[in-house]
Design a protein around this nucleic acid. Structure first.
Lengths: 117, 117
DNA sequence: TCCGATTGCAACCATATGGTTGCTTGGACT
DNA sequence: AGTCCAAGCAACCATATGGTTGCAATCGGA
């Protein structure tokens, strides 16, 4: 049986969560996401005007964010590519965190009960 | 005004969240945490028996996890050091994720309203 | 047609990261 | 005293990562 249900090509909850964690672990990436949240969809060069790093660095981060599903690239007129935020993977990661924390506390309780017996 | 309330030496929500993201971005670190969740508090050598990496690698990961607040080191008898899970930072990171996703959707709504006007 | 602006691609660089081997330290037990 | 086992420390290595510069391709407009 496949490890996941839903869309046939679903990468798995943990895989999505890992990509989100990797993405959010970097400050520059968080800055890019914050800029997109504040100013709406934008291109790489547009972001390069507001952030202290070069356009190419931003482009690399955007491909990583795109692979993580946190942004989607929409090709518009005049060869421009606008990137839009996508909150779905973050909610997956959030569920993953919640399940992990719950698992920890559950097993801690089980350990406590074991020590009582 | 200080950026945070609560304990005077509080590192800030984003800083805690970043450390959690960094910690959880690595599979070996997640394996260590899973082993601790499954078997209860354990030492580095104990974990090295269950995981496919060396004790020293695990020790490095444990110091990182300890700095992130995800585990606490308790020194016992005969120079043993046991590591115990700590779920509090994960809940902080979870709140951070939730706030971020909410912020994204809020600003997307604001953009939509702006386009309507 | 030429120019400016924008995207994509490639090479390169410095540092961080994950992991290993090897050695020392330090008890606890015989 | 000698031995065994666990922990700490240090050097080292390969690769990943974040960032840069430079260049080619492509489009719209003067």
């Amino acid at each position: 049986m496949p490890p996941e249900s839903g869309t046939p090509s679903a990468p798995g909850v943990e895989a999505v969560a890992e990509q989100v964690f990797v993405a959010l672990a970097d400050p520059s990436r968080r800055n890019i996401l914050a800029a997109l949240a504040a100013g709406g969809p934008a291109t790489a060069t547009d972001l390069a005007n507001r952030l202290p790093i070069t356009r190419q660095a931003i482009a690399k981060h955007l491909t990583l964010l795109s692979e993580a599903g946190l942004v989607t690239a929409e090709h518009g007129e005049r060869r421009r590519v606008r990137f839009r935020l996508q909150s779905a993977p973050m909610q997956v990661a959030q569920q993953f965190l919640a399940a992990m924390a719950r698992d920890w506390d559950t097993n801690l309780d089980a350990l406590r009960n074991h020590l009582d017996s």
